[in-house]
Nucleic acid binder design. Structure first.
Lengths: 216, 216
DNA sequence: CAGTATGCGGAGGAATACATTCCGGTTCTA
DNA sequence: TAGAACCGGAATGTATTCCTCCGCATACTG
């Protein structure tokens, strides 16, 4: 049906397309999906014209970035599931290593703009649902192992990491990057099952904040 | 010198001024200090004209909001210091209850826009420094008590809470508010001194990310 | 290696979003 | 009740941003 851009494009065009996607991913992660198109083009080392030729409008770009990252996370999760022996180590590894990937992904679940764009895209939803299933499995498994505190839901975890990803503006990118890794570490410790403070309310599930469905 | 707005203003004007400040605080906390002035005016229930009469431009408003919140946090911290018996409980109580206050405060330390405005304001700096001193005392004390993990600095804590404050967009404000409280709880547990994962790098101090000084 | 289809960059038109000003009408205060 | 202080929000000017268009460049094909 639709020609596959991966194979149909001329070599240089293909290269540019990839650069655009990569640049957009980085920039979206830091500044959200509303940055000027020109900024993305510059970061990708191409002209705006090229950007628009490949992605007719901003929505198309956002969708493409989301798809790309959802896929990547899903693959990661599956690899991890296969390699790790316990659900807890799988969960914490996924969270830890996904700083970059989740970066974009979660952002796509938090930004109102992206939400509107993605809400009605069946392909995106399918991927997203698959990810949620895997995540829920990890969470349930880790609880069963007694490693994850029982009073959290996958929604809590999602929020925790979604909020964390907006890169902090420290004095240098190095410090910022280190800080992010350390925050993740602290949060993982906060999630582990050890006698700690009791949390208010009830566990938040992924359904509680499912941005893909209408408000209650 | 400068007439004190608290006493000089006519009653209704004074009331409006307070409403504007309150509205700005809330909105800044959620959306950052770059929201359209009109939105703030609407939230405060006044016209833009009134907003501009009271605060000549955006910078003035940002500064006023920052001052207001810095003061509030400082007062809170001092009250807590007087009431709590251990540094750890003081620290965790401060973090827990300051969800709203810290909200604005930290935001003012993260947003580039606010930074520029506040960087050269000596009054703001003075307050800010006082807060940092109190926070450092709490941190040092809690470590001495063996309640706070030794491998974190006050900078780590600041980042942790600064990133957390951008309100999550859940299905309802209630859920969002609950989620925020739960996140704080999880983070506090992550900070407590119990055998957990080792953090990468070295503790981040408040100086490491001090936005009031130039990049190294 | 020449011919051509495909792709490229970026100037520029159109639309929008914002900050800020201004003034006729309203509300306090003495 | 007089008059000063204040209010709302329409109107103006400006800065951004989206997206199109077209002359030029580059990659594939035989």
């Amino acid at each position: 049906m639709t020609a596959d851009p991966e194979t149909t494009l001329r070599a240089d065009a293909r290269r540019n397309r990839d650069q655009i996607l990569a640049a957009a991913k980085t920039i979206f992660a830091v500044s959200g999906p509303e940055v000027p198109m020109e900024e993305i083009a510059r970061a990708a080392g191409v002209g705006v014209g090229t950007l628009y030729r490949r992605f007719p409008d901003r929505d198309a770009l956002v969708r493409a970035v989301a798809m790309d990252n959802f896929e990547r996370v899903l693959i990661d999760a599956k690899v991890i599931a296969a390699e790790e022996t316990s659900a807890w180590s799988a969960l914490s590894r996924l969270l830890r290593q996904s700083v970059e990937l989740q970066l974009s992904v979660q952002l796509a679940m938090v930004s109102p703009r992206a939400l509107v764009i993605l809400k009605n895209d069946p392909e995106v939803r399918r991927l997203r649902d698959e990810i949620l299933v895997v995540l829920d499995e990890f969470v349930a498994g880790a609880k069963a192992e007694g490693k994850l505190r029982l009073d959290v839901g996958s929604g809590d975890i999602a929020i925790l990491f979604a909020t964390l990803l907006r890169q902090v503006r420290a004095k240098s990118p190095d410090v910022a990057e280190l800080a992010a890794r350390r925050c993740v570490g602290i949060m993982i410790d906060g999630l582990s099952a050890r006698p700690g403070t009791e949390l208010p309310g009830r566990p938040i599930t992924s359904h509680d904040l499912d941005p893909m469905t209408e408000h209650s």
